[in-house]
Design a protein around this nucleic acid. Structure first.
Ligand code: ZN
Ligand code: ZN
Ligand code: ZN
Ligand code: ZN
Lengths: 136, 136
DNA sequence: CCAAGGCTGAGAATCGTTCTCATGACTCGC
DNA sequence: GCGAGTCATGAGAACGATTCTCAGCCTTGG
């Protein structure tokens, strides 16, 4: 089926970078991370790889307030949402069982079909709050 | 307070365009709309005005999957969410009372502060579905 | 080891959005 | 009405993120 996907050093590097962190990261951050690590990979390749991983459901993508895409390889591939620190990207996977059914119900009641939902929580994690307190 | 804001023909035009539609629209769509209408307004001004309106809570902003910002003047200014048609932008304002408390609770339980939530539902409205059925 | 075709990366190109700055429009006091 | 002081406008440049181009490289199957 997708036998045409080749395992290259670059893809492994990107996947490795994703596995190495627990935080949501932008394509550019991952690109820099790889460069610093010594596994330099072209920016275009980073984007392409993330795109492929996202399409395959292997990484989660979300958008910051200003539209930048952030990626993260979550522990599970089943549907879930996130609570993300807006300053460091640290994330916690969360479930919202009642939210799921609510979304479907509301959508259907308005005559809409193919309902999907975007549900993400943003906040400041304990570490970042402590850091801010010290400097502020 | 904000007495330094002047009511200009351009701002009125943008506000008018927003009032004239019930759908979420991008800055560029509004810009074209105004041009077609005869109330040509510079693109930069459209962006600036939308920004100001959004800052003042007079219009709602949301981001499409690919990061583009969409704006809409909703009937109410109190906190609410939306069910948006991904093909025409038609939107319905919705409430999620249980969702609100869930968001706060989950955020706090993980040690995060300043919790905010992004909750939007996407779907295909009845009209667009009908249109798609005819052509497909 | 080879051919075939996916993969890569530097740089150009897009695209949405913001910035710059010279010019225009308001406001207010006279 | 008139001018100074300001805020607003708009054309175009600048930006930042992402995508595209395409020639050369590398993985894979045999
Ligand atoms: Zn944090
Ligand atoms: Zn969900
Ligand atoms: Zn709204
Ligand atoms: Zn809410």
């Amino acid at each position: 089926m997708n036998q045409q996907l080749r395992m290259t050093k670059q893809r492994a590097a990107v996947a490795g970078a994703l596995d190495a962190t627990d935080e949501f990261r932008s394509a550019q951050q991952l690109h820099e991370l790889l460069r610093d690590r010594g596994d330099a990979v072209g920016l275009a390749t980073v984007y392409r790889t993330l795109q492929a991983l996202a399409a395959g459901g292997e990484v989660d993508v979300l958008r910051t307030d200003d539209g930048e895409a952030l990626y993260r390889r979550c522990a599970r591939t089943e549907h879930h949402h996130h609570l993300v620190c807006r300053s460091c990207g640290h994330a916690v996977e969360i479930d919202g069982p009642t939210v799921e059914s609510w979304a479907v119900r509301v959508g259907a009641s308005q005559g809409f079909s193919d309902i999907e939902h975007t549900i993400e929580l943003w906040g400041t994690c304990a570490d970042c709050r402590a850091a801010a307190a010290h400097s502020g």
